[in-house]
Design a binder for these strands. Structure first.
Lengths: 292, 292
DNA sequence: ATGAAAGCGCTAACAT
DNA sequence: ATGTTAGCGCTTTCAT
């Protein structure tokens, strides 16, 4: 009989089922920052972990607007989602999205300022260490660092880790850490300045792949061979950028898919009444290409 | 009283409401191709049009797998979505996702092979015309075309439109249309070949911004001034690419946000029992920067 | 005006 | 094994 029903294309009404089960097999995902390069792998990771269609995901783009965010939160709660994943582009800790909510919340990529909240974050400092140890292992000693705006926590964390790691190895950042923007244009400008200030630089660790791309272009155009004269390592492993670079860019991959999968898995744990780990740090990987 | 309830953070149970209303104020979005640069603006446009939180969107990534797609379709129907938006990266027409479904379906960006289905698509041929008329207006006459794989409908449509438009103006594509890949590397290779075959080329219309970027780089490196010697126009207006180019890239924008908004609006029309237009073609825009 | 009751479609518990 | 029923939380209708 059930088979017959299936054959006829019958699908049970989820609203009725939810009503009586008190569970909707639905989760909400709120991205505080506008959806993009980071939210999508997260969503895919989450979908995977949630069992491909067993659990559906409401994706909400709060566009960095707290009012929208609260509105979406209400909507999601009204829809009786079983849990919520909060994410965003900035990795800096953010205030919790709500207090004593009726459903579990997991912060993915970003973390909450409340240490009691569950969050899954990338290891940005570890990413810097990975890049630098690779550069040291290949014999580089005069290493510069070009990165994004000083006010971005990501830039600061990566820069601090860079300084600390080099200091621990008896080295200093060549030139000085150059904060600017997450753009190719800044990469080009920064390396030009740097070649003035410290022409003997033999490696540049960049805070993003876009910056690295700018650095790479200017190095090539000023006659430096990469990686022979100067090695370059990027950050994010944004494939379209890294693969189109000349030479293809070695880059730190924060493994965002995995962050998404873990966040989803922890959310399911919490939904089912277990206690997921409060704070998970996902180790980065170095993707080696030809730039260093 | 109702105000008091609001104050206390009460939110009505949507499952119960849906059960009795027979409507969930929920729509599904199935991307057949993996989610990305195209689905997100679509989602944002759709969210906007659906009234920011009035209607929530289930986003499903079918990853180009028909089995997954059918599975998601069943799931969405089970969840009693009021309607479904189907989208994907390829603009080529695709078989309908289902026959005589209980809810309306709108195809966005892609279209259905069934002419009775409602679809909202970009005007790719019009985009080519826009680019070429701009080049002609600025005095170019020896115009080349470099684009993606011949098997991609987008490449073919744009190339055909290019040939036709030039022919109508008494011109031919300089060299010949060069099909390849949607990559910078192909752009670099193609323009190198082209400069051999037709060194007097004075404009290159490219099938994507990535290709255009490769073309731009090689032109600059072989001593051509852009746009003085050769003008370059891209396609997609992918901001990170277009703005990082040297010089910044003039590009055709297919206005995907608008496609998303229209698709959502048509879906709402259909849900409310009206008859949305069967086939909507959204006009492209040319975003002028400095490359031509 | 306010209040009571029926019913949306399902599942789980119960009765046959 | 099969069938019947209560109730999930809301809205709508009807009665007070």
């Amino acid at each position: 009989m059930q088979e017959a029903a299936e054959q006829l294309g019958f699908v049970a009404n989820a609203a009725a089922r939810s009503l009586q089960a008190g569970r909707t097999y639905t989760v909400g995902m709120i991205t505080t920052d506008s959806i993009g390069r980071f939210s999508i792998p997260l969503l895919i990771g989450a979908e995977d972990a949630l069992g491909a269609g067993q659990v559906s995901v409401f994706l909400c783009d709060a566009r960095d607007d707290p009012i929208r965010e609260q509105y979406y939160l209400r909507t999601l709660l009204g829809r009786q989602v079983d849990g919520i994943i909060v994410t965003g582009r900035r990795t800096q800790a953010r205030p919790p999205i709500g207090r004593s909510l009726p459903v579990p919340v997991v912060y993915a990529f970003i973390s909450s300022t409340d240490p009691a909240d569950c969050s899954v974050v990338p290891d940005e400092a570890g990413g810097a260490v990975l890049a630098l140890s690779h550069l040291l292992a290949s014999g580089r000693r005069r290493i510069a660092h070009v990165t994004g705006p000083r006010r971005h926590s990501s830039a600061l964390v990566r820069a601090d880790a860079t300084r600390a790691y080099l200091r621990d190895h008896g080295l200093a950042v060549r030139g000085r850490v150059r904060f600017g923007a997450w753009t190719e244009m800044w990469g080009r400008a920064a390396i030009a300045q740097l070649l003035e200030a410290a022409p003997d630089v033999d490696a540049v660790f960049c805070g993003s792949d876009q910056i690295a791309r700018g650095v790479l272009d200017t190095l090539r155009e000023t006659g430096r061979r990469v990686p022979d004269d100067v090695a370059v390592v990027g950050f994010d492993n944004w494939t379209v950028m890294a693969e189109a670079s000349r030479p293809p860019l070695t880059s730190v991959d924060l493994d965002i898919d995995r962050i998404g999968r873990l966040a989803a898995r922890h959310l399911v744990s919490a939904i089912e009444g277990r206690e997921p780990p409060r704070h998970t740090v996902v180790p980065p990987r170095l993707v080696r290409r030809e730039s260093g």
